[in-house]
Simulated scan of single mutants.
Amino acid sequence: MDLTIEDLTVEVAAKTLVRDVGLNARHGEVVGLVGPNGSGKSTILKCCYRALRPTAGRILLGDADLRGMTMRESALRLAALSQQSSVEFGFTVDEVVATGRLPHTGLLGRDAADARQIIADALRTAGAGHLSGRPFLELSGGERQRVLIARALAQQPRVLILDEPTNHLDVKHQIDVLRRVRELGITVVTALHDLNLAAMFCDRIHVLDRGALVAAGTPRQVVTPGLVRAVFGVDAHVVAHPETGVPQLLYSPDTALDGAFPAAVTTVEETTPA
């Protein structure tokens, strides 16, 4: 299922957080949102999973406008992991993941007979199968993050929204989780801080700065020294990964620039394979 954002603007307390942003995540793609802190990544994702109402513009799931769906209808199509996801009750890991089944069953309904298998599969896909049965509140931050990803997967969405999914994860599990997400074969839109991880796992990358979309394209087209310097204020060398060929950044440690990318959108023509 495609996810399409058209002319999205978000204003809160007379402040414009996002202005005129548009993007399309096609079926089966992993699309990354990158940008400095406060650039609008989480604001856009909150609009996608309906935690925030946009001031203008619209979001489509397939051909359907999100505004015309009930919360349950959208939850049957789209699942999300937000930065604020938390569980404060004394649930087991399996019980936490089972809450991802609520759109399918309602609060009082019964799930299908294969619910336990769905939960087990979601835990395994998130690299958390060994945590089954453990008290959630006794887990480390990284373990909790993997369980919360499993909860979103148990929802069996066609579109998955991930806001900084690698938070609290060590390097091994960052790579493992993003690799597993890629293998799902569903549409994924994710905000990432690590540009190298974005280049490794995203089909396309959208770059945000001060609430505006300033560049979009494949990793090879977007991850360039000029863009990194202008948007993030650091100098970097770009090298090809020796195994995959995707661009990877080597940062210069002594740069602390005050650059600003032009406000106009620079959408790169996607002529080079990802």
Rank of each mutant, 00 (worst) to 15 (best):
L81D: 01
E95I: 06
V207C: 01
K15V: 11
G22I: 02
D111Q: 07
A199F: 01
V246Y: 08
V87Y: 02
A199I: 04
P219C: 00
L192P: 07
T43A: 09
Y49N: 04
G106K: 03
L249F: 09
L139M: 10
F89Q: 12
Q155V: 03
V222H: 00
R58Q: 02
A236G: 09
V12R: 09
P54T: 07
R116H: 13
K41G: 05
G40A: 00
T266N: 14
D63K: 01
V188D: 07
V97R: 03
T16I: 11
D258P: 11
K46H: 09
G40F: 00
I175M: 12
H241V: 04
G22H: 02
T267R: 03
L76H: 05
E143D: 05
R26E: 06
L169N: 01
G28T: 11
V34D: 03
D63H: 02
A256D: 09
D121F: 11
L108H: 10
A191E: 07
Y49L: 02
L23G: 14
P135F: 11
R77E: 12
S74M: 13
I205L: 02
E11T: 14
L131Y: 08
T266S: 13
I59K: 02
S252Y: 01
P54I: 06
S42V: 09
S82D: 02
N196T: 11
Q174A: 09
K46R: 14
S132I: 04
V18F: 07
L148K: 00
L81N: 05
L178K: 00
C48Y: 08
V171W: 14
M69E: 12
A126P: 07
T187K: 00
A215Q: 05
F91N: 05
A216C: 12
T267D: 01
R182L: 10
V268C: 00
R229K: 15
P135R: 12
G109M: 04
A126R: 08
L108W: 13
V10I: 03
A236C: 14
K41I: 06
F232N: 07
L33E: 04
G38R: 00
R158S: 15
L250A: 15
F201W: 08
Q174R: 11
T266E: 12
D111E: 13
P135S: 12
Q248K: 05
L208P: 02
H173M: 08
T166V: 14
L213E: 10
R134Q: 14
L23V: 15
L213T: 09
S85A: 10
V10N: 04
H193S: 01
I118T: 15
A51E: 06
